[in-house]
Simulated assay, not measured.
Amino acid sequence: MGLASMPALQSFGLSALTLAIVLGIAVGNTVFPSIAAAAGSGVDFSKSTLLRLGIVLYGFRVTFQEIAGVGVAGLAIDVVVVASVFGLATWIGTRWLKLDRETSMLIGAGSAICGAAAVMATEPVVRGQAHKVSVAVATVVVFGTVGMFVYPWLYPYLGLSEHAYGVYAGSTIHEVAQVVVAGRAIGESAASAAVIEKMLRVMLLAPFLLLLSSRIGAPAGEGEAKSKIVIPWFALLFVAVSGLNSLHLLPAAWKAAIIQIDTVLLAMAMAALGLRTHVGAIKQAGAKPMVLAAILFCVLTVGGYALNVGVARLFGSSM
């Protein structure tokens, strides 16, 4: 978190979560194996229980009033982006690239919704292994960072107002931090619209997880039916916390403290995932995850632009 607060790293959109998993992987493949027997249970607690708690508290970053600010058009754009990108990721990943379903879904969730946070939230539902989560996080970090620099460069050629550009960036760039950087590069109006649109995508995480859980169900075994639905309660609590935050009952100082605690919890979870990730497993995954992420990046950039323009015309919004 100290590194993430440095201006030089902030300019690259590197959040505490990204840095935590990178440092976790570095330690996990050097020092950690010698202390894994003693520290392993704490690491596993961090990447499971603390992860879910962190996702729940993430709701304090979102209000329903902010969501209403982007209107029906903004909601329509985000719903189409989330559904189409995740669907394409699963189909292309498993059918064309012959990736396993868990990796395809994790990359799809990270690209479609909110980067590393979405990957981590999806992991308990798809039951992905640590190295698959790390691979997925790596892909969304790489292409989200690319988008953070490419979008401001494209702005003069897009024919969009600052507000419309912000909605476009918020609906298609991976990480919240990257959205902020891409928006502020154009102006405060663009940054505000980008963050609000991005927070709307974050809000879609809960219904997405519920639908995904209903499709996947519980693992078969010992008298348990495959069709049984596993409810990700932390997703429902995330919505509840967002609703509480929308009432503006907490003092600003309390809310800031809770968000700081949430960042600590999520950073611990990311570091724990990194500690449980072996470089050999990532190498074994090969180039296919990166190819899938690159395809999704192109879909988000080009298809997302066409979608934003089309929806704006449909709803009569000004571009």
Rank of each mutant, 00 (worst) to 15 (best):
A190P: 04
V311H: 06
G147W: 04
V230A: 12
A26F: 11
A73H: 06
S161A: 05
L250K: 03
S214G: 14
T18Q: 08
M105Q: 13
L237S: 10
G159F: 01
P251E: 09
D100C: 05
Y168H: 07
A271S: 13
G74Y: 00
I282N: 00
L19D: 08
G108K: 03
A256N: 09
L249Q: 10
A269N: 02
R313V: 07
G187Q: 07
L250P: 01
S189I: 12
A269F: 09
E123G: 04
M6F: 13
Q10E: 09
V309R: 11
T277I: 05
I25G: 05
A4H: 03
L106H: 12
L154G: 02
L154I: 06
Y157W: 14
W91K: 09
V195Y: 01
I229N: 08
F238W: 09
E175C: 11
A76E: 01
S5V: 03
G42E: 13
M148F: 10
V291R: 14
F297D: 14
V126W: 00
S5L: 12
Q10S: 07
F60Q: 06
V62S: 10
V62T: 13
V27R: 04
A218G: 01
T49H: 14
A271P: 00
S213L: 01
I231P: 01
L236N: 06
A112H: 03
G243K: 02
L296M: 08
A293V: 09
G280M: 01
S111I: 08
F315R: 03
S41P: 12
G2F: 12
A164Y: 11
T94A: 01
V31C: 05
G166C: 01
T18S: 13
S41C: 11
G221R: 12
